[in-house]
């Protein structure tokens, strides 16, 4: 069964999957504990506008999507800064407009027909080696920034007001967090696609949260879980010749429900003992 890893495209897929899983474990943890899943969804879907820009102006995929997603993340940060839990409407509008903008630009792009499906569901089996280097660089930057600002991110996520009084620069930190989400989203779109990005960003941290007593442990646990889901999903998609992004998410979703059920059983057992 291991002979499939001899193919270069499969090796690239595995590396891309691992890099995306680690990044998602780190950033997804911050997304989950800050309860900004909806904002992240908005950034992810608005990133479609970046795909449109890349095609219309014939830019490399990474340049178009990264640039546009960072722009959207700044706008999101501005509109949600005052009250990050009650800005649903404006997030929803940005979410839809970003996607619509991308579709319009693709319509206007002359010539060839773009394979939209590969962006909606990912194309992990078609990641070129050059993109892996981009992904590696971005992952390292994200991990470094998270480690450098770890205590500040922790304080902001747990108790923003207290963090402010202690002199943590919460506002720039919030912009940085959304920018890092944008970067991660662009990386992960390659692996599982636009529609499924949020699943890979949130499911592993959701499972890890219950078993962790610090966010760095949650990040490591979520990264490991994400890697298991991604590689398992990738193998299943290869064997059964099905869409890899969807297969990865089905594995992650199954893992999520298994952890829910086992959590319930453990709770019940503990109650019986008590």
């Amino acid at each position: 069964m291991l002979e499939i890893f001899q193919f270069e495209f499969m090796q690239n897929a595995v590396f891309a999957g691992l890099l995306a899983s680690i990044t998602c474990g780190v950033i997804g943890t911050l997304v989950v504990v800050n309860r900004i899943v909806f904002i992240s969804g908005g950034i992810a879907h608005a990133a479609y506008g970046g795909i449109g820009i890349a095609f219309y102006f014939k830019l490399p995929y990474m340049v178009g999507t990264l640039g546009f997603s960072l722009l959207v993340s700044i706008i999101m940060a501005v509109v949600t800064l005052k009250d990050r839990h009650h800005s649903d409407t404006v997030i929803g509008v940005l979410w839809a407009m970003g996607m619509a903008f991308g579709i319009l630009l693709l319509d206007l792009s002359p010539g060839y027909n773009v394979d939209l499906m590969s962006y909606l569901f990912g194309s992990i089996l078609a990641v070129p080696r050059s993109d892996l280097w981009y992904m590696l660089g971005l992952s390292l930057v994200i991990i470094f920034l998270t480690a450098f600002f770890y205590n500040d991110f922790l304080a902001m996520s747990y108790d923003e007001e207290f963090a402010r009084i202690r002199g943590v620069h919460v506002t720039p930190l919030y912009f940085l967090l959304l920018a890092m989400i944008a970067v991660s989203v662009v990386m992960v779109i390659r692996v599982v696609g636009l529609i499924l990005v949020i699943a890979l960003l949130t499911i592993p941290p959701f499972i890890a949260e219950k078993y962790s007593n610090s966010i760095w442990k949650m990040m490591i646990f979520a990264s490991i879980l994400g890697s298991i889901f991604t590689i398992t999903g990738l193998l299943i998609s290869y064997w059964f010749d099905i869409t890899s992004g969807a297969s990865i998410i089905m594995v992650a979703g199954t893992g999520f429900f298994l952890s829910l059920i086992s959590g319930k059983i453990m709770d019940a057992a503990r109650r019986r003992e008590a």
């Binding site: 504990v33 007001e161 202690r166």
Partner: peptide, 27 residues
């Protein structure tokens, strides 16, 4: 602060909560 604003399920240990009192501006 008032406790209502704080997420009770947050994955954080007691000692890490108290260490927040030692945060300082600057990095």
């Amino acid at each position: 602060p008032q406790e209502i604003g704080i997420n009770k399920k947050f994955p954080i240990s007691v000692s890490d909560v108290v260490l927040m009192g030692r945060l300082k501006p600057g990095k």
